[in-house]
Design a protein around this nucleic acid. Structure first.
Lengths: 145, 145
DNA sequence: TAAAAACCTACTAAAATTATAAGAAATATA
DNA sequence: TATATTTCTTATAATTTTAGTAGGTTTTTA
């Protein structure tokens, strides 16, 4: 019942890009350094976000990545569903309609459906902007204290 | 973000035992046959439930297992937390208080804490009795149709 | 005392996770 | 145009987790 590094790192990249939104393009090297994550590994994760038009990428010298939309337009759910594959707690929920021959008699199906729903709803209730804003507030608090 | 077979099988065992509550002891052989799960694998899972007093076990001839309490007294959350280890979506939530040195600046900590909370609350809102009752209702519907 | 049951520990195969490595393709600037 | 820099692509590998098997020990009742 864990979120893998793939999803977590993707989220951290998106937060890093959100923090630097409107500053221009960030290279993967920069992102990797700031977040202290292997650049090589991020190279494998970021194309998923890019292919799905979450990012704008330019290659070559002075290239890099930036968010395709405003931070408030990305939910955590969108990012994690993409990078984790999906957020289904059991694999029989992955295809809709459910193809399991025992779905009609399954005593736990509604349980997993309900869990799936609360997870998605919660993660879709939080945007990148929320995460960035919260960190700003927090850093501010540190100063006051 | 998946529940493993360990947790799912444990839940199915508990449902089987709940359905046969007050009928006496059930052997693991019976449970395994009815649920179509390897008995050898269940032998590895059931001691966790037993050690934590979820079950009453008797050894030897005519022995077996039965629920230690009424089905309504077990939540799905209790069963899954035990058999899955815990339900934390990220490992840094596993120890309280949080020992991560970066916890104060972590922009995603509150996100994971919130997810952890909705998952636990949802799974603790459903009892074994709910699951058994729902299946009864459903089987009844099948007759009507 | 024999059968049947829970209990215990070690082992193993397969899959997923978490990366590394090596290079190809594209592009801005000198 | 050459070069450095960057994204992009594919292959490989180590480690960990998952999902079981196997073989035997202990307990209990008939």
């Amino acid at each position: 019942m864990k979120i893998s590094t793939k999803g977590r790192y993707a989220l951290r990249m998106m937060i890093e890009l959100a923090q630097n939104h409107n500053v221009g393009f960030m290279t993967l090297k920069e992102i990797a350094q700031k977040q202290n994550i292997s650049k090589k590994y991020l190279e494998q994760i970021i194309p998923v976000l890019n292919r799905n038009n979450f990012l704008i990428a330019t290659r070559g010298f002075q290239g890099g990545y930036k968010l395709a939309k405003e931070p408030c337009e990305y939910t955590v759910g969108q990012i994690l569903r993409l990078t984790e594959g999906n957020l289904a707690p059991v694999s029989c929920l992955e295809c809709t309609p459910n193809t399991c021959p025992r779905a009609n008699e399954c005593p736990t199906l509604f349980l997993w459906e309900g869990l799936y729903k609360v997870v998605n709803e919660y993660l879709d209730s939080i945007t990148l902007e929320d995460l960035v804003q919260r960190q700003k507030d927090h850093l501010c608090n540190d100063y006051i204290i």
